[in-house]
Amino acid sequence: MALIEARDVEIGFGGPPILSGVNVDIEAGEIFAILGGSGCGKSTLLRHLIGLQAPQAGTIRVQGEDPAVARQDAPPFGVMFQSGALFGSLTLTQNVALPLEEWSTLDADSIATVAAARLALVGLDGFENHLPAEISGGMKKRAGIARALALEPDILFLDEPSAGLDPVTSVELDELLLKLNANLGVTIVLVTHELDSLFKIAKRCVMLDRDAAGAIASGDPRALRDDSTDHRVHRFFNRQSSGAAPA
């Protein structure tokens, strides 16, 4: 059984489904990407995988459990939202410390130490006592990752982690994710548009399409780029406009 399983998932908001017949199997220790053009439902699928929304039909299982049920105890996975979703009234340290205070047995000093180390890990050392409103968008994303890592999750869900980051920070973030995956065995599921980052870190992916209202391809992103005969996949990976003739 895969670590994360989606079977015949149909997603919608009352009207016609925006995604249907989606099947995803993500194995433990994988770095898996959800791809697709804007508005195809990537982030929506992610929200379903983490149990924030329930599918209209089909089943989703994370570590064999319904994610909405699994989240009611100590969160089994960390999530970084697109804009960081930091709590505005708390400093960065307090944001990262919050899940530790709630779910770990560490004392206050140890929590502060771990929170500071998480922030240093994502390059935010020096900004421990800043409020989210005082830092840039890229820094908020990194702080969001630090918070997602707080409880040493086995699975990390990241919504567009590299978008809006400068190239150096983006490469550093890719390297960090690779290290977390290789050394801590963290399974990483990310939504991304950034092809460079995708080819560097993702081992497998699923590609969604708005017109098809579902998945149109899955597999190794490099293989899809080089071998796919589907013109939509080809256009995506080769950055071609929809008016361009298929190669």
């Binding site: 180390a117 240093a120 050392d125 020096g126 900004f127 421990e128 006592n129 800043h130 290290k179 050394n183």
Partner: peptide
């Protein structure tokens, strides 16, 4: 090896000091 990598990942050497005291 695995332990050393994690240890190195969290190595505080070169860590920038906090820019401001806690509130």
């Amino acid at each position: 090896d695995g332990v050393a990598t994690i240890l190195e990942l969290y190595e505080p050497r070169g860590k920038r000091p906090c820019e401001r005291p806690p509130p």
